[in-house]
Amino acid sequence: MQVEMKDQINAVVGRYQTRRSAIMPALALVQESVDRLHGDVLKEVADVLEVPEIWVYEVATFYGMFNTEQVGKFHLQLCTNVSCMLAQAERLLQHLESQLHISKGGTTPDGLFTLSTVECLGSCDTAPVLMVNQDYHENLNEHRIDELLVQLKRQAAT
């Protein structure tokens, strides 16, 4: 692990009474620069925080936004909870699956897209909603999804 990353993690520790509290922010910081939170990464985080490795592992595997498996460059997370479901999110899921030629949970062979469903994103008045990495795309339909995919592919190429 880079010295700068260690410094960033140690800076966060000061916000809390215990070093253990910094596990979540440390994982969030580290995740930005690794493919996935695999065992070696978790061990490094544990070493920096001076906590048992199992403490880091249990947090990394409990919270859904910590990726212990590799995800594509663009992680597409479609909300299918009630408000989005009532706005035809399931039809959009089928559309995404057919456009990307993958099933829910899969990653395209070029590593560009991972497709997941997600629970409520708190944007129910603009349903259906898709989160791409950290960005929300709202009031979607098939046409807008097609445009979005073209735009993301173009973004990846440049």
């Binding site: 009630v82 408000s83 409520c120 708190g122 944007s123 129910c124 008045d125």
Partner: peptide, 11 residues
């Protein structure tokens, strides 16, 4: 930690 489906006020 607003996550109750249908809720978007705190955001």
């Amino acid at each position: 930690d607003e996550a109750e489906p249908g809720t978007f006020k705190d955001r």
